[in-house]
Design a protein around this nucleic acid. Structure first.
Lengths: 224, 224
DNA sequence: ACCGAAGATGAAAAGAATTTCATTCTCGCC
DNA sequence: GGCGAGAATGAAATTCTTTTCATCTTCGGT
């Protein structure tokens, strides 16, 4: 289990890092919010532990930055005594739990364990406008009506919806849906996109998949 | 959003119930642990709020009873000041969060919102011995090696794994995997079971799927 | 030990999904 | 306005998945 600890007080940081490592967790430590945000975005962590008062970016800003980009990693915030309003704010920007300094290391570990129990979870319903992609059942609904898609169609749509509002290229789609074993001259993606669009049109006049010429496709609710 | 509140102090219970209802949550209230466990097992709740000190069963026992039966509903525990050891115990038996009385209703609501954000999650990896079924990607691994299954094979195996250690009949499998549109005389399930078994055998001598004659099939790690 | 029901099996048939490819259409640049 | 690249399209070909079915094997009851 990999944990990112963002804490600028060296004594506290070392105490926590050492204690977690004695429990067999792998711990990366950074000392300011900017680095914390960058590591949180790019690293594959199972848990983030953030101090609130940090140089460069506060724990609030780190949490918000992560949640805004769809990062679901659990976040445990460490704070000195602060106002209820600030605690509420922290939970609302995306922290999962709070611990107020000073705290018992036993309780700290128990909270870490509770948060890590939820590591293996993910949003199961992706939504774009009235389109709902259920990533467990691999079924898609539009305004409550099922959009019956073949496996490849589903995989392409899910990929596009996960990258909502971002253009993805055919190559990215091929790599993600087919893996690396594909013919680079193929127009098979275009064929499937056509098929998905046709099925969408049967249920709504609204356009969900846009073409960005020379780049690729994207799912959006705000048409060009 | 439906919330189950288990609290025996009438004043506290009414205060919380009313406050949550003003925030448009639907709240069921019960006053002892036994009823809390029963409601938690059978009701479809988005969140459980448990007092610790309850008649008949403690909040610990309720939480443990729910987690032991696979209930994943988030649990917020309310306590008077208790020892760190008891807090640790509560988190370890399955509570997701604690709030210590007396508490600010604003903070309480923020914690409720934080827990409810995780409502739409579920275990994505089902595991039986060395078999791991990823319900998001619909891929199956055995000792780290992928077991490549066709869609129908995957659906049958997932169904059996979800009902681990329980016998399920061919009719149940047909209803769950095919829906209600099937020929009752078909042996298509047997054919697919054979195929799944064959693929499993290629990776391990261990038997995962047992036949219960005249009843059906089950997945287990403890062979008959 | 025998028998019949239940389960397993192999292979062909049928159905579904995906890919290929030739052609047409569209769009942005000059 | 013309042109060429990029995208879209329809339909056939190919591949893959599922079902069917006849036959064999197994198991539990008598």
């Amino acid at each position: 289990m990999r944990i990112l600890l963002v804490e600028d007080e060296q004594g506290v940081a070392n105490f926590i890092k050492k204690g977690l490592e004695e429990e067999r967790y792998t711990v990366d430590l950074v000392t300011d919010g900017q680095a914390g945000l960058e590591h949180g975005l790019t690293g594959q962590y199972d848990l983030l532990i953030l101090d609130l008062m940090l140089p460069k970016k506060s724990g609030f800003e780190v949490a918000k930055g992560l949640r805004d980009t769809g990062i679901q990693t659990p976040i445990l915030m460490l704070t000195a005594k602060i106002s209820v309003q600030d605690k509420v704010k922290g939970l609302d920007v995306g922290a999962d739990d709070y611990l107020t300094k000073p705290f018992s290391f036993e309780e700290f570990l128990a909270r870490v364990r509770a948060l890590l129990r939820r590591k293996q979870t993910e949003m199961i319903k992706l939504e774009v406008g009235d389109l709902e992609v259920n990533t467990l059942s691999h079924r898609v609904f539009l305004d409550g009506k099922e959009l019956v898609l073949r496996p490849k169609e589903y995989a392409i749509l899910e990929y596009l919806v996960r990258a909502k509002d971002c253009v993805v290229s055919r190559t990215q789609i091929l790599e993600n849906v087919w893996g690396y074993d594909f013919d680079p001259t193929t127009n098979v993606v275009d064929v499937h996109i056509k098929s998905i669009r046709k099925k969408l049109e049967e249920l709504t006049p609204k356009e969900y998949i846009s073409t960005v010429r020379g780049v690729g496709y994207m799912v959006t609710t705000t048409p060009k």
